[in-house]
């Protein structure tokens, strides 16, 4: 899973896709996932980090990340070919 390379992620939770001109807003959890993805972390690694830091059970987390990633795909924020 690779984020679109040119994606601009601001700490305030504003995402700008310079290739399309679309901008997005995101909550803290989503921002963390994007930043981790940008650092090259895998889905598994991200899950581990969340389980450590957040009060959340694994099923709910799995389900939430799955849904979030489907939204990233929906918005074309994932590199093609993945």
């Amino acid at each position: 899973m690779k984020l679109k390379q040119k994606l601009a992620i601001s700490d305030s939770g504003f995402i700008f896709d310079p290739t399309t001109g679309e901008s997005f807003s995101i909550n803290q959890e989503g921002l963390t996932i994007l930043q981790l993805l940008k650092e090259g972390k895998t889905e598994e690694e991200i899950k581990k980090i969340f389980l450590n830091e957040y009060d959340v059970d694994e099923t709910v987390l799995d389900r939430s990340i799955l849904d979030f990633i489907s939204m990233l795909k929906n918005y074309n924020l994932i590199e093609n070919g993945e």
């Binding site: 601001s10 305030s12 939770g13 504003f14 700008f16 901008s23 807003s25």
Partner: peptide
């Protein structure tokens, strides 16, 4: 500049 729009949209 987009920064202005960004600041308003987030803050």
């Amino acid at each position: 500049p987009m920064e202005k729009f960004q600041i308003l949209s987030t803050l």
